[in-house]
Simulated scan of single mutants.
Amino acid sequence: MITASIVTYHNNKEELKKAIYSFLNTDLEVKLYISDNSSNKDIKQLCSDSRIEYIYNNINLGFGKAHNIVIEKAMKEGSKYHLILNPDIYFNNGVIENLTKYMENNKDVGLVMPRVLYPNGDIQRLCKLLPTPMNLIGRKFIPIKSLLEKLDYKYEMQFTDYNTEMEVPYLSGCFMFIRTSIFKEVGCFDDNIFMYLEDTDLSRRINEKYKTMYYPKVTVYHKFEKGSFKNKKLLIYHIKSAIYYFNKWGWFFDKKRKEINKEILNKNNYKKI
């Protein structure tokens, strides 16, 4: 069985309907969990399909913690693969089938992310190196555009063509197709991270034991908005998460991060600009 979880918080219902339909539009055995952090049950009306289980949390638990409730259920119910899915993602029939086949053929892969496009067809640069403090905190306060572009060129792996399958140490939490059994080895999302960087942390833990892969032969669409760049409250969440993340893994002296990023850069023929 393939399971998926969508965490909701007063989301746009039309966008959510597209995400739900995208996942359920398959002949495979699937089950979708809606983990609702909203202050009401308005979203429940969209969960009439027998393959959907609605979970009302009655409080905003945050992204990772709300997904963890589902992951625990999925493991108990014998899920083979689990999809972390954002409510503003949509895709065509065949995506789940192709990713399942990819995982079946690559037993050393624990996590895979497809090509992610904006609705207009532009690529989203969601393949990233393990972040440094400059990538996550410093860049928000740097007014020099040329320096920001140089940082992102390396951090977002813009030096690759994004058309080639490659191992990536940090894959976006908007669409994470994961071998469910590995949660028993590496754990779920870190409950201490309310929002932002929970995907970084989980990707890194998975990458310590399995390959974490970008697979561009499969495409999904993501109506992505950088909320922390527009909303002061979300920016505070982002900064708090970054501080927690670096306290956990290391700020400027993170030897493992340096080794992993160096290996990825070498594999992909990185050249400075």
Rank of each mutant, 00 (worst) to 15 (best):
I2Q: 01
I2T: 02
I6Y: 03
T8S: 06
H10P: 10
Y21F: 06
S22D: 01
E29N: 14
K31H: 13
K31S: 09
K31R: 12
L32P: 08
Y33L: 14
Y33P: 05
I34R: 00
N40E: 10
K44R: 15
K44A: 10
S50T: 11
N58K: 15
I59K: 12
N60H: 05
G64N: 01
N68W: 00
I69Y: 15
V70M: 03
K73Q: 10
G78D: 04
S79N: 03
H82S: 08
L83M: 09
I89A: 01
F91M: 05
N93L: 10
N105V: 08
K107M: 11
V109D: 03
R115M: 12
L117S: 05
P119C: 00
P119W: 00
N120L: 02
D122Y: 09
D122W: 07
R125S: 14
L130K: 13
T132H: 04
L136Y: 10
I137W: 02
R139K: 11
F141H: 11
I142Y: 08
I142E: 14
S146R: 10
L147K: 06
L148M: 12
E149V: 07
L151A: 02
Y155V: 02
Q158K: 14
D161F: 00
D161H: 00
E165Q: 11
E167H: 03
C174K: 09
F183E: 05
F183M: 00
F189M: 04
D201A: 04
S203C: 11
R204N: 09
R204T: 02
R205W: 00
N207H: 15
K211D: 06
T212Q: 01
M213D: 05
K217F: 13
K217T: 12
T219D: 09
V220M: 01
S228R: 09
K230H: 12
K232N: 14
K233S: 13
K233R: 13
I236K: 15
Y244S: 13
Y244R: 15
Y245F: 15
Y245Q: 09
G250Q: 01
K256N: 14
R257N: 02
E263L: 04
I264G: 09
N268I: 06
N269L: 10
N269P: 12
Y270M: 06
K272V: 09
K272N: 11
